[in-house]
Amino acid sequence: MVGSSSQNSGRRRGPKVATRTLISYLTLFVLLLLSFVPIFMMISMSFRDSLSIYGDFWGMPWPPKWGNYTFALTDLFVPILRTMYLCIISIAGIILFATLSGYAFARLAFLGRRLLFFLVITMMTIPGMMLLTPNFILADFLHMKNSLEGLAFFYIGSGQLFAIFLLSAFFQSQPEEMFEAARIEGASEFRCVRSIAIPLAVPILITIGIMNFLSIYNDLVWPTLIISSPGLQTISMALANYAPSAGNAIGQMSRPDLGIITSGYAVASIPLLLLYTFGMKYFIEGLTSGAVKS
């Protein structure tokens, strides 16, 4: 009797669970489609000219205007390279200093270690917008305004907190025996970092690099405050000011060319798409690498 009653209750719950699962998948599918609408519209508009967009906003891009991408790539190629340079030097500095700091917090015993790590955690709770004014005053005092290296200096500083937190947690999850064996063989702490800690932390270092790349590449507020020269604009600044005039055989239009502008957005998204395509595997691996203590 007990077995039959449990089977009957299981049959009653079965259709309900299946219905809930179906509703969940349908909801997720609808949300996925809605999230692709802006991307589809951007790609569609990037192959059209302003006249066709203003005349029929929802029209299809036929015939496609491939010249829009030529104009956009010509105008935005240098800002993209400039931003890539800024991202590379910033991420290199973040990884270098955060690796040493995270290892020190995780593996070295020194006076005030717990207090300093508590301060790191505490500073992570401060909103970044509250630091704009003091950082701007500091940049002016250090004569780092209107400089890509000055931008990188503050990106390196702001990226330290979360990177130190992740790396410290990762290094603490690794077995102490490996480091003790290396010390017994005569390895210094720097050798332990270079030969043991860094090779083990490659996935999480890639994760830190990807997260900071997205943040730096898309940042508009801080570069706008620091950079005043048009020749030093990052890609976000260039896109914010990108408004080529629409023209035809008769003359120029008073409105900006939406086709070239949206093609500029598409061109600027290429580095991010490549980063997601080739780095997502390592990004997920880095996020889960310290989840289970060895």
Rank of each mutant, 00 (worst) to 15 (best):
T224W: 02
M84E: 00
P134C: 06
F118Q: 12
A268L: 12
K16A: 15
W58S: 12
F47C: 09
I88S: 14
T288L: 03
N248I: 12
E180D: 15
Y282I: 10
I95A: 14
R194M: 15
I94E: 06
P79G: 05
I88V: 15
I137E: 10
D56F: 14
F36G: 04
M280R: 05
G231R: 08
Y242M: 02
N146H: 05
G159Y: 07
L86S: 00
T133F: 04
G259F: 04
L119H: 05
A139T: 04
P15Y: 06
L22R: 08
P127T: 06
S269C: 12
R48V: 09
S90G: 03
P230A: 02
F57D: 08
T99P: 04
S269K: 09
S4Q: 11
M1R: 00
R20D: 13
I226Q: 07
A182D: 12
I210D: 08
M41T: 12
E189H: 10
A169H: 03
I260E: 02
I226H: 04
I261H: 00
M123T: 03
A109R: 14
A169S: 09
M129C: 11
I204S: 00
I126N: 08
V267Q: 02
W66L: 13
V30H: 06
Y85C: 00
I80Y: 00
E177R: 08
L33K: 01
I137G: 10
F47V: 07
A163Q: 08
G209C: 07
M60V: 15
L214R: 03
A104T: 04
A163N: 04
Y69C: 12
M1L: 09
F154M: 01
R194Y: 14
L239H: 00
A109D: 15
V30F: 11
S188E: 12
Y25N: 14
F171G: 09
I137R: 10
S195D: 13
P203N: 04
R191F: 13
M211G: 08
A139W: 03
G247K: 01
L148Y: 02
I216D: 02
I91A: 03
S254A: 14
F57M: 14
I204W: 07
A268G: 02
F153A: 12
K145Q: 15
M129G: 11
M123I: 06
F117A: 11
